[in-house]
Design a binder for these strands. Structure first.
Lengths: 171, 171
DNA sequence: CATCACTGCTGCGAAATCCGCAGGGTTCCG
DNA sequence: CGGAACCCTGCGGATTTCGCAGCAGTGATG
């Protein structure tokens, strides 16, 4: 017990501050806490504390801070199919003019689950979650293509989701 | 209070069974529970019960069942950048021969966060999460392209993640 | 119609967890 | 040397979780 991270606590603490790019830097203990919560988001603080070598209260404070900072969030994730969304697609988009403003417009659409600006033959890639084919068609043809600046789109309808994990940092 | 779902409980219960396609069907109450947990994965059962019109114990039993069935999971999700993964990419893949076996091989790779079989000009799309450029290059050129059956790949390196939600069912 | 199995909800007490707070140690300044 | 900023620990009290017994509705069976 308490075998984990004991060395040089002072150094670890220091780099939980902001780094130059504005994103908070995480020490090994916070990373270990995140790993615990990636396995089970409801794991008790005391159990986490035992695993990472910290008291219950300390874990609680760190978790709260990570949540406040937006470093992580603890949520239920579902299989879209079982929740009634039968059609999903990835859409690659090419833009003329300001990519960011198109991205913002997409972000505002509730059907867009995932919006990312990319390098390559697409400027944007968007994941769409819909209830059925009609819905999907409507979103792609009527809403996305209608956005000012959208030059072209290419769709990849999902046939089968093989893997979906949230294990960043657990490697 | 208790204003939510009171009508026809018998009907609701019935369709929490399996439907023809093997995926469990969810009633309105379970959906409401999931929505609560999508807002906060650690919300107490009693609070959820108050919101959906059920007792604490009933909520607890339903949540446990949803977890057991694999309908949802409660986990911590993070911003990859703050956890030390500085390069991400979407990779479109074309396959000759058995697509499924290639998909399985990709699924087994820890760097592949997301694997989906698609219709369109790619057979597979894969999201890769890496520590740096070298790591990314290695995964794409050495590991993915080396897979038997992989005919070609096209990469889309992430420049900026604009949106990432887990709000299925919360619409 | 009686009965049995099954499922899901409720209520309740005991155990475990969460929460707020006071106190102590360390580091970093002026 | 103070003082401020952090982060940790320990500790009660409030809250939550947990397991279980009991009950009601449904469907199948004879």
């Amino acid at each position: 017990m308490h075998s984990e991270v004991v060395a040089s606590r002072s150094a670890d603490q220091r780099d939980s501050r902001e780094s130059r790019n504005g994103t908070p830097q995480l020490d090994a203990v916070s990373l270990a806490i995140i790993e615990q919560l990636q396995e089970d988001g409801r794991r008790p603080y005391a159990a986490i504390g035992k695993a990472v070598g910290l008291s219950e209260a300390a874990v609680r404070q760190r978790v709260q801070k990570l949540l406040d900072q937006g470093v992580m969030q603890i949520v239920a994730v579902t299989d879209p199919l079982t929740v009634g969304f039968r059609r999903q697609a990835m859409v690659g988009i090419n833009v003329e003019g300001d990519v960011e403003s198109v991205a913002d417009a997409l972000t505002a659409m509730s059907e867009c689950e995932y919006v990312v600006m990319t390098a390559g033959s697409f400027d944007l890639m968007v994941e769409i979650v819909c209830e059925d084919d009609d819905h999907l068609l409507d979103v792609i043809n009527k809403r996305i293509r209608a956005l000012p600046g959208v030059r072209s789109t290419e769709s990849f309808v999902y046939l089968k989701l093989k893997k979906q994990t949230y294990m960043w940092g657990t490697r």
